[in-house]
Amino acid sequence: MSGFVTVAQLVEELNLELIGSGIGLARTINSEEINRPGLGLAGFLVYYPSDRVQVLGRTELAFLSSIDAMDARERLKRICSFEQTPCIVVTRNQEISDELREEAEQYGVPLLRTRLSTPKFIAQITTFLELHLAPETLVHGVLVDVYGIGILMTGSSGIGKSETALELLKRGHRMVADDAVEIRRISEDTLVGMAPPLLQHLLEIRGLGVLNAMTLFGAGAIRTHKKIEMIIELEAWQDDRSYDRLGLDEDKRRILDVDLTCLIIPVRPGRNLAIIIEVAAMNQRLKRMGYNAARELSEKLMSSMDAHED
């Protein structure tokens, strides 16, 4: 389900300077990896990753200016001729030779330039591409940031997710998305959630309608995106179902191949869910810091049993 990024988006978001007529800006970037075409320019084109963004740093340009102009043009022609190459970026605001400009223009490869040094630019573009090309999914739920912990609240419609989010907002926490959460896997084990652009800052409360959390509660009440650390599933209280009494074991829920801790919280009139979620967030932080109350109690119990036996 990976998307793509157009070169025009890249130019816009990373503030790149466009050299030439702007031909080929609609080309798409489908790979988050970057290539420095040193070997390609040297003439070795086996395994040449032509589908990646090609970055020309000092080394590449120094090499090109060390050989004669005709030869350089031939080598550039080969690099520029791939239709799948999204664009070529020159770093450090280096001077661009006529050969490079003309060959890029002829084959319709966008030629861009950045002020940054090569390593800095590669770091920046990699982060940008990883975020935008990451696998994504849309989940029904509410994403909130409680004491810095990103909590995805799920549960059937009408169970009270938005109402709980509202109370959390009143208590000074932040909302990321209500109802629909776009989730992206930005690295092997990291999920980031955000609101679909149209629904940003909005939440819906039955009886009140659509509300804007930012205008109601201020800029401090919202976040554009947040790493998701746990899932809290709200469900109607069922008498015959057993709920976790200890908290020794963690349930996991899988989203985009990432396992997240999942708590199932039964909902019953008179239970203050916002407080329960606040405490769940704090407890999660404690666990992350290495303290687990349930485990400690269990260990104490075991050692007092051993003491009794002696």
């Binding site: 015959d240 009494r245 200890l246 020794l248 349930a294 109690l297 269990s298 119990l301 075991m302």
Partner: peptide
């Protein structure tokens, strides 16, 4: 085997709640 440690205790309590 382990007496009423945390996990068996939780199971015991769950049973009692039925």
């Amino acid at each position: 085997r382990a007496g009423l440690q945390a996990r068996p205790a939780a199971q015991f309590v769950q049973e009692a709640n039925r």
